[in-house]
Amino acid sequence: MKKGTLRQVLLLTDGCSNAGGDPVAIAALMKEQGITVNVIGILEESQHGEHGLNEVEQIASSGGGISQIVYAKQLSQTVQMVTRKAMTQTIQGVVNKELQQILGEEHELEDLSPAKRGQVVEVVDDLGETMDLEVLILVDTSASMTKKLPMVQEALIDLSVSLRSRTGANQFSLYSFPGKRQDVEKRLGWTPHLDSLSGVFKKLTPGGLTPTGPALQEALHIFYKRMDRIEVERDERTDLEETGM
């Protein structure tokens, strides 16, 4: 039997959105569609605290994901930690629902005795290792991010190293916003590895606006399209991925 696929958006940004719809609302919609939204807020070395990055937390919490605020230098480790934690959290959510069906309402992992908990956690660990994963990476490339982009690129290649070590299959795609003409620009179509990433951020023309909402909306459409196609051509799935969309 085929185990399900975990779908995630990983949003990397350094500040508040200032164009288009409300990203928090879109994130809530995505959660309803089974897509987790994780957000990493990247600070400048000179910046302090979490000032102005409230939105980061709000998007993640309404998107059922995890948020983390870091300095650019610590990005690599954080990106992989957030992705992994979010996977576990999503799977745990599913397992918790199953538990509730078996044990009745108001029963969660914490309500089990420590001995029984161990078995449940082993199942969750197993699933996290073997389920297929699709990550759509959305990178904010507004003017203030320019200096941080080399770090972002490094962190993403690093994420690819981590995820490739899993037993389950991985698919990544990379989009940046704002784009030249549209809100979002495609940088890399669905691919199992991010090695092809080098140089992707070179030809950027940094823009002033940060249309986070529209960018998330576009991400949702990309997932819709992908899910439809997989639905139709499930049998030819491996073929499709190899011809490189």
């Binding site: 745990q92 992992l109 908990r117 161990g118 956690v121 082993e122 969750v124 660990d125």
Partner: peptide, 13 residues
């Protein structure tokens, strides 16, 4: 987080 603590307990066991 009961998840990560239990995971460690599993290893120790």
């Amino acid at each position: 987080d009961a998840m990560s603590i239990t995971s460690e307990v599993n290893v120790l066991k």
